[in-house]
Write a protein that binds this DNA or RNA. Structure first.
Lengths: 332, 332
DNA sequence: AGGTTTTCAGATAACGTTTTCACGGAAGGG
DNA sequence: CCCTTCCGTGAAAACGTTATCTGAAAACCT
């Protein structure tokens, strides 16, 4: 690979001048600029990112730490981040935390060590205190999908309690009262918030949520399937289900069909997230939309602002929104 | 951030010794090792990746260029790459090409400039000649989902023509003869190969494929929906459809349902890819499985072998496989 | 015991940029 | 026309590692 020195020799100038032409930091005469550009072209010169980073202390990289790159949920999030990063001429470094504290920790340190200019992380396992400590480290960190009290400006989040309540109210409004709830893993703050929303909405309607109708699953299709079977056994009279995410709702679909129940005539279902598959299910799934792509963009903008040390105003708080499709009907 | 010099001063040794302890390149006495490690710990020292890269010319990064990080297809691929990279202590740089030649080019150069140790790319728009040229560049490149004649060892691919044929034969075996085909964009080699497989299988069965029953769409749900409507108009007597990917099959589902056709009793459908949603559709989708995650792993292993200059034997060629579910039935 | 090898650790030279400082010449002001 | 300001350029000093080259002491032979 050609170096900046070779370019400078060929152009008959100093390496400093080549640097100036390429970065546009200081005006250089048109004549010299032309010679430099020609030499760059001729040698196919590409600046060495390591050397540049060593002196500027910038990598142009945005670190992203999520659970699983292949899940539709994170796919959308990353797409948003990527769009914003690309527009800013930055690239993405990704790392998976797999929702395990040690791996999340390793992922964050890994990305920071590689000198990401900033980090965006969807952390599920690490405790609040640990995260607060990370917030004070030199690499700017934006948390998405989580709200840290006292650090809201560093978080891009959505009120899952409100989302859980909206989902539940939608079912209540359709006349349902025996409503079951399939939650995500207890250890995820999101799961707990959605559950609180569910319980709160039930109580507001004068109904005491039956603990036997709340069952924990794993945010996966298979878990939703098993949970639904268990629920039908516990109470065959269930007329509606609020699933903690769309994948579990899809599993519940399968279990209900297997039990000969029609959706939505016998049992209504509301999901959560509005990932792609919600529109592919049959009947299409009524769900709570999280504007994931937009949240990814917002997180990226916030991160980039921190890097540039700008006081850009970004949107931190997003609202869950009901997307009404075909999986809910009025109780007969 | 603490530097290696500060660590060396605190430990009362030279910076070279600290480097040796940390990298284990040369034996160092236990006593000195202990002092160094203690100093590292005390200062919270983290080696500077830029400085290290500058001298080793390694970044520990694996560049990945795909169309769209959020699509289920690429999600699986990336998951495979990521698993293998993580095991090797490398991290992922990702960039989107959006299936446009200029962006694919920009993505590859971007990643190479950032000194990825190797690149893995799913290139759809760039021509073969351009790719061959990239193969000769200093950064090792592995192509996935594409076979470059004469460079098979640098490609991880699947025979889409065989896949297209398998799908079609499956429908033929169920007695169907009026079979339509919804292809992906003509400009994608994969689309063309699947189509060739379709036509080949038809001819082998003594049927001349009707060009009016082959229609081009965009690999998206919406495109599949429109294509299916158009097909029904052209020939209401179609009894089976081979869709170029699962998303378009899902779109076709919607169009068929809208037209009052039952799947699979009135119309049978076969998809392609076996992404997550194939199992969520109702009825579940019979499709051609591409072992994407495994292909991602193979590509990563091949790339890592190139970096290490090893002659590791990796699997280049994968076989498409029929996954029989509920969307195909015997012609009545 | 004397010489030779081995072992461990220090000094220092890269690596390829950006940036600071200095300097000569041109332009501008009185 | 001289003095000052400004502009464009070059020389050289970082930036923080790893790796090479020495050197001193310790261990090993005969």
């Amino acid at each position: 690979m050609a170096t900046i020195r070779e370019v400078s020799r060929l152009a008959g100038v100093s390496n400093a001048t080549v640097s100036r032409v390429l970065n546009g930091t200081v005006p250089v005469s048109p004549e010299v600029t032309g010679r430099v550009l020609a030499a760059v072209e001729q040698l196919g010169y590409r600046p060495n990112a390591f050397a540049r980073g060593l002196v500027t202390n910038r990598s142009g990289g945005l670190g992203v730490c999520v659970n699983d790159v292949a899940s539709p949920y994170f796919g959308l999030l990353i797409r948003g981040v990527e769009a914003e990063a690309e527009a800013a001429g930055m690239h993405l470094l990704v790392s998976s935390g797999h929702a395990r504290a040690d791996q999340e920790r390793a992922g964050l340190e890994f990305l920071a060590d590689r000198r990401s200019d900033a980090l965006i992380a969807h952390i599920e396992a690490l405790a609040d205190e640990a995260l607060v400590e990370y917030l004070s480290r030199p690499t700017p960190l934006i948390l998405v999908g989580r709200k840290l009290a006292g650090h809201e400006e560093r978080c891009v989040y959505l009120d899952n309690e409100v989302g859980g309540a909206i989902a539940t109210e939608h079912l209540l409004q359709h006349g349902h009262t025996r409503i079951a709830h399939i939650t995500g893993p207890e250890r995820f703050p999101d799961s707990r918030a959605r559950r609180r929303g569910f319980e709160c909405a039930m109580r507001s309607a004068g109904l005491e949520p039956d603990p036997r109708l709340v069952i924990e699953a794993d945010f996966e299709e298979e878990g939703g399937y098993r949970a639904m079977r268990e629920l039908l056994e516990r109470d065959p009279g269930i007329s509606a289900v609020f699933a903690g995410n769309d994948q579990m709702a899809a599993g519940a679909f399968a279990a209900l069909r297997e039990a000969g129940r029609n959706i939505p005539d016998d049992v209504s279902i509301v999901g959560y997230d509005d990932v792609l598959l919600a529109r592919y299910l049959h009947p299409t799934l009524t769900t709570i939309r999280q504007p994931l792509e937009e949240m990814g963009r917002a997180a990226a903008r916030a991160a980039l602002a921190l890097v540039a040390n700008e006081r850009t105003e970004v949107r931190n708080r997003f609202e869950p929104q009901l997307v009404s499709r075909q999986s809910v009907s009025r109780l007969r």
